[in-house]
């Protein structure tokens, strides 16, 4: 079971490395969206500091959502997904492996790049640290929840737009606690409560989302 888990992660990472432009697209989408806000709102640093947590989190949400389309689609097209459905290992474990690999190539770079963008918004080192921490806990949850939507809309007309309609309402708790933790920490209230809730959401989605995704994949690929 665990060897299948490891194999699928290695395979997906290898595939991603062969198609680096896909990975970079998501990352640059995040960078561009975050850089657009100062252009729309104005270069006032006090305002920027205030809106930074919200902007970063909304941008991360959108980037994660855009990347979802590729999560199962290639495997669905070339038939690899059918083989996974037939595999003796539990499908939810394979799904978990795929989601983890997907997060490693689309979510983690975003977390690692956020300090650089934080400097654009004149954030303090402490704020950047807590922001990275929330993104580190929050973005895997986004990938896990989003996988359900990606599996449900697999192979549908206009799947990309549809997936946003399905997934974005479900992302709201992550957004609230993620951006809330940063804000609570900078305002001196302490973001531990928010971080704990974020961790709880991550654990719950790691448990339940692969099962729902596996069910949805079986429905979509039948």
């Amino acid at each position: 079971m665990f060897s299948a888990f490891r194999t699928i992660i290695a395979r997906d990472l290898l595939l991603a490395m062969r198609r680096r432009s896909d990975v970079l697209t998501t990352l640059f989408f995040f960078v561009i969206v975050v850089s657009l806000f100062p252009l729309g709102i104005g270069p006032e640093l006090n305002t920027l500091r205030l809106i930074a947590p919200g902007v970063f989190w909304v941008a991360a949400l959108l980037a994660s959502m855009l990347a979802l389309e590729k999560l199962f689609f290639v495997d669905y097209q070339d038939g690899a997904l059918e083989q996974m459905l037939l595999a003796p290992q539990p499908l939810s474990i394979l799904v978990l492996g795929k989601v983890l690999a997907h997060w490693l190539v689309t979510g983690l770079p975003l977390v690692l790049l956020s300090p650089l963008l934080g400097l654009q918004y004149d954030l303090s080192t402490a704020t950047i640290g807590i922001m990275m921490l929330t993104l580190l806990i929050g973005t895997p949850a986004l990938s896990l929840i989003g996988a359900i939507g990606a599996a449900l809309t697999l192979g549908l007309r206009g799947g990309g737009v549809l997936v946003s309609l399905l997934v974005l309402p479900l992302y709201i708790p992550v957004l609230i606690f993620g951006a809330g933790a940063v804000e609570a920490e900078t305002s001196g209230l302490g973001g531990t409560g928010h971080l704990s809730m974020l961790g709880a959401i991550l654990l719950l989605s790691a448990l339940a989302a692969p099962l729902a995704t596996a069910a949805a994949l079986r429905i979509s690929a039948e």
Binding site: I148, L152, L166, P169, L170, I172, P173, A212, A215, A216
Partner: peptide, 13 residues
């Protein structure tokens, strides 16, 4: 599947 996922999420939301 979407409805069941939604119903679990409603209290969280």
């Amino acid at each position: 599947v979407l409805l069941l996922v939604g119903v679990v999420n409603i209290p969280i939301i």
